[in-house]
């Protein structure tokens, strides 16, 4: 076996990829051949350097964009009409930018009056629908994010949707019931208050009060239900009054609110 053959084997030797015979061959050869030993050393050094290269971390918007894309694809799957989402050259930068562009377009249409009224109205309706769609996508992509700030942002997107679909309402209800942070639960509850005319939302709010244990949430729910004059809230309030564990200051508050609704 000559040096050329050995050099070919050295790579595998470094990775322990050689069978016993070849391994012995290489080891024997290395003992006697200084030029191959040098090559071997060089490979070891090279591999060590490669192993020192650290992984780069992508910016966070990669994940955000992925989530937005996934939400959009899910939506497309559900409505089973394929929405063209394929980005042209640059992959979409951010949902917000798109939303901003759409808003700008709306204002352009409102300002410019070269179109007849009927078609203009139609365009605006279409754009409004687009905007809702974007907000829906943005909400769904962020609502289960690890970051509480982003979950708050998702709730705030949802709150701005004029007519949210059931999926949005369901995720808000889920967030109201369950999130690590009371802050997010309160925000979701507040967003739902805006849609309290919806029967599903109303029922969810009434049901939530029955099982809720957090004082801030209790007060918030009572406030919302009293504001919409929902009589079904009364039994839950009375139950809280009878509960020994309810702190006095909450009882005082409930008594005050009860006067408003009865």
């Amino acid at each position: 076996m000559n040096c050329k053959d050995i050099v070919n084997l050295i790579n595998d030797y470094k990775y322990n990829n050689l069978d016993y015979t070849n391994k012995t061959l290489v080891e024997e050869h290395l003992k006697s051949c200084s030029s191959c030993t040098q090559i071997h050393q060089e490979f070891i050094h090279l591999i060590d350097t490669i192993n020192q290269v650290q992984e780069e971390l992508p910016d966070k918007d990669l994940e955000l964009n992925f989530n937005a894309m996934l939400a959009k694809e899910k939506l497309a799957l559900k409505t089973s009409k394929s929405i063209a989402f394929k980005p042209k050259k640059k992959v979409l930068k951010s949902i917000l930018q798109v939303a901003a562009t759409i808003l700008l377009m709306i204002s352009c249409y409102v300002l410019g009056s070269y179109k007849d009224r009927a078609s203009k109205a139609k365009e605006i309706a279409f754009l409004k629908q687009e905007k809702t769609e974007m907000q829906t996508v943005a909400t769904l992509s962020l609502i289960d994010n690890e970051s509480a700030s982003k979950r708050l942002q998702a709730v705030s997107y949802a709150k701005d949707i004029a007519q949210p679909n059931n999926e949005i309402l369901s995720v808000l209800i889920a967030k109201m019931k369950n999130d690590k942070h009371t802050n997010v639960r309160l925000a979701a509850t507040n967003a739902l208050a805006k849609f309290a005319k919806n029967t599903m939302v109303r029922q969810a709010l009434i049901k939530a009060l029955k099982t809720e244990e957090n004082a801030n949430m209790q007060i918030e729910l009572i406030q919302i239900l009293v504001d919409i004059e929902e009589k079904q809230v009364i039994p839950s309030m009375e139950k809280l009054l009878q509960n020994k564990e309810t702190p006095n200051y909450i009882k005082d508050h409930i008594k005050l609110e009860l006067k408003q609704i009865i």
Partner: peptide, 8 residues
């Protein structure tokens, strides 16, 4: 992002 501070 929106912020929130809640206390009992």
């Amino acid at each position: 992002y929106p912020m929130s501070i809640v206390a009992d």
